[in-house]
Simulated scan of single mutants.
Amino acid sequence: MNREPIKLVVVSAGLSTPSSSRLLGDRLAEAVRQSAADGGRPVEVRVVELRDLAVDVAHNLVAGFAGRTLAEAIEAVAQADGLIAVTPVFSASYSGLFKSFFDVFDNDALTGTPVLIAATGGTARHSLALEHALRPLFTYLRAVVVPTAVYAASEDWGGSGDPLIDTLPTRIARAAGELAGLLLARPPAPRAAAGAVVQFEQQLAALRPE
């Protein structure tokens, strides 16, 4: 049986501290870890907080070069065995920072990567953003998106203990089980590094005369 650790990356686009998007990402990652452990595989979790990369992402979009910190985050995502992507919903869609981060990737960087999509917002009215915005984005990037997407509105965090009302834990468990199932079904394989991401210093060195 394969005992190699599964590399799971959580991308959180939450802007506040603490962030409900980060909280949801952490709960999903823990549920995936537990489900994978039941299948005999440990999970190594890395969290990428896009809030800390906002300036680097903007510079990359303008200059076309990824700085060291952003390049490391891109490589971590591209090399992951699985991905949990969580964004707050603004104006019925993902945040601009979330979209800008994934705009940096080559179209084939996430090919075949199992992805669990999730979002947070103030009202359940925005839950459809998962299906009309996030799922098409990762389908375009050729990722394998699990069937269950998880949306957490403000009222989902104050559970009453009623299983007919408090469905967030159930949705988290179902989505995590689906992602863990995909991860357990295939061995970790080295993914193509985000080769298009070249350090700015290297770009400058290439322009210097011999």
Score class of each variant (00 low, 15 high):
residue 93 S to E: 11
residue 72 E to K: 13
residue 121 G to S: 00
residue 44 E to P: 07
residue 141 L to E: 01
residue 155 E to V: 10
residue 171 R to S: 04
residue 93 S to C: 11
residue 157 W to P: 04
residue 113 T to D: 04
residue 140 Y to K: 05
residue 77 V to E: 04
residue 84 I to Y: 01
residue 114 P to K: 09
residue 101 F to M: 05
residue 144 V to F: 10
residue 29 A to G: 12
residue 189 A to C: 10
residue 58 A to Q: 10
residue 160 S to A: 11
residue 39 G to E: 04
residue 132 H to N: 12
residue 145 V to Q: 12
residue 161 G to Q: 07
residue 198 V to K: 15
residue 149 A to M: 02
residue 151 Y to N: 02
residue 132 H to D: 12
residue 57 V to R: 12
residue 15 L to C: 05
residue 1 M to Q: 14
residue 62 V to S: 12
residue 13 A to W: 03
residue 100 S to I: 07
residue 22 R to I: 09
residue 96 G to I: 04
residue 206 A to H: 12
residue 13 A to E: 07
residue 178 E to M: 09
residue 172 I to Y: 05
residue 152 A to L: 01
residue 111 T to E: 12
residue 79 Q to H: 06
residue 13 A to Q: 04
residue 51 R to F: 00
residue 94 Y to N: 07
residue 190 P to N: 06
residue 67 G to I: 10
residue 4 E to Q: 15
residue 7 K to R: 14
residue 17 T to P: 00
residue 150 V to L: 00
residue 111 T to S: 13
residue 77 V to Q: 03
residue 52 D to H: 10
residue 133 A to H: 06
residue 62 V to E: 15
residue 110 L to N: 09
residue 33 R to C: 12
residue 100 S to Y: 04
residue 127 S to W: 02
residue 144 V to G: 09
residue 41 R to H: 09
residue 176 A to V: 02
residue 79 Q to P: 00
residue 59 H to R: 14
residue 194 A to G: 07
residue 176 A to P: 03
residue 33 R to N: 07
residue 88 P to G: 02
residue 184 L to C: 03
residue 34 Q to A: 11
residue 177 G to R: 10
residue 166 D to L: 09
residue 103 D to Q: 06
residue 80 A to I: 01
residue 110 L to T: 12
residue 62 V to R: 11
residue 143 A to Q: 02
residue 55 V to N: 03
residue 141 L to Y: 00
residue 192 A to S: 12
residue 139 T to M: 11
residue 59 H to G: 05
residue 79 Q to R: 09
residue 191 R to K: 06
residue 95 S to E: 01
residue 147 P to V: 09
residue 152 A to R: 04
residue 23 L to A: 15
residue 120 T to W: 00
residue 209 P to C: 09
residue 37 A to M: 06
residue 60 N to Q: 15
residue 192 A to P: 03
residue 158 G to K: 10
residue 123 T to G: 05
residue 199 Q to K: 12
residue 187 P to A: 15
residue 200 F to R: 14
residue 58 A to G: 08
residue 97 L to K: 04
residue 42 P to I: 11
residue 64 G to K: 11
residue 53 L to S: 03
residue 120 T to M: 01
residue 55 V to F: 03
residue 135 R to V: 10
residue 127 S to Q: 10
residue 53 L to A: 05
residue 86 V to H: 05
residue 131 E to A: 14
residue 8 L to D: 00
residue 72 E to G: 02
residue 174 R to Q: 15
residue 46 R to S: 13
residue 152 A to C: 05
residue 167 T to V: 14
residue 35 S to L: 00
residue 180 A to D: 03
